[in-house]
Design a protein around this nucleic acid. Structure first.
Length: 278
DNA sequence: AGGAGGATGTGCT
DNA sequence: GCACATCCTCCTA
């Protein structure tokens, strides 16, 4: 994959090692901001710069209780990947529809992971758009004469040129949304539950027709933190900020109060764009 | 065996 | 803003 073509110096990127992911998820999570996840699925490569993550703990991860974790009730067939070697990807199905991607962290035998919530597609945007069902605009050479009745009509009807990904043109909004949100991120990456669950992003070994690589970037100057989406307000979890994102980044998903969070948040400020560290 | 609910996203009103 | 898609997992009977 062209992940191997990435400049290892200058861009400040290097392949993540298993040791990089040995710490608690809450410590690893901010280190994954600015990192790249490169995937090749069915021969098609996509590279995503990670802009938003959440830490999830389980038994063995520093004794920190985490009611929001899939591993909260112990080891099961579903969450087995979270208990394994760090650096593998825990791919789970959300709401029967979305495949969401976590980087397993913490030592083998403990359950922990970092949910990749959002990112910017740097390479393979056209491939990601096809996977997401996003229809690009008219590409070069197929765009009808501007102002023609045909083009206006087709535009209104949503009829588009063939999704020849490389020639299609996408709006800035379409590009921003390609991996904005965990479900979209998973779809853009091409990794899917259940066949890619457990794929190793350190070795890059092939699994079910896919390969994945994780590249770490230099630490960022500014990182924002706040409550996790969907589990904010669950007792015990908002004692620590377990959601991290790159401030001002347009690809970060909009915050939504989780179940029960509204009540728990009475008398507190909304997280908004959150506190900024460093 | 049956059912509730989920680390969500989309499209329509 | 609200309904709904869609299916797996775990809890209860």
């Amino acid at each position: 994959m062209s992940g191997l073509d990435l400049p290892s110096e200058g861009a400040g990127l290097r392949r993540a090692t298993r040791d990089d992911l040995l710490g608690l998820p809450v410590d690893i999570a901010p280190r994954l901001l600015g990192a790249r996840l490169c995937t090749v699925v069915d021969g098609e490569e996509v590279r995503i710069r990670i802009t938003e993550v959440e830490a999830y703990h389980g038994a063995g991860t520093g004794g920190i209780p985490d009611p929001g974790s899939h591993a909260r009730m112990g080891r099961t067939a579903r969450n087995a990947t979270m208990w394994g070697e760090p650096g593998h990807l825990y791919v789970y199905l959300s709401h029967g529809i979305h495949s969401c991607v976590n980087v397993v962290s913490g030592p083998e035998g403990s359950a922990g992971g970092v949910l990749l919530r959002a990112g910017k597609v740097e390479t393979g945007a056209a491939v990601a758009a096809v996977r997401r069902g996003v229809r690009g605009g008219f590409g070069p050479g197929v765009r009808p004469e501007v102002g023609s009745e045909l083009s206006r009509s087709e535009g209104r009807m949503g009829v588009r040129a063939p999704v020849d990904a490389d020639s299609a043109e996408f709006s800035t909004r379409q590009l921003r949304d390609l991996a904005r949100g965990p479900g979209r991120f998973g779809q853009a990456s091409g990794l899917r539950h259940p066949r890619h669950d457990g794929i190793d992003a350190i070795s890059g070994a092939e699994r079910a027709g896919a390969r994945a690589e994780l590249w770490l970037a230099d630490p960022l100057d500014e990182i924002a933190t706040g409550p996790r989406v969907g589990v904010a307000g669950v007792a015990g979890t908002d004692a620590f900020p377990w959601r991290f994102w790159i401030p001002q980044d347009p690809t970060v998903s909009p915050f939504r109060w989780g179940r029960g969070a509204a009540e728990a948040a009475v008398g507190r400020d909304a997280p908004g764009d959150g506190p900024v560290l460093e």
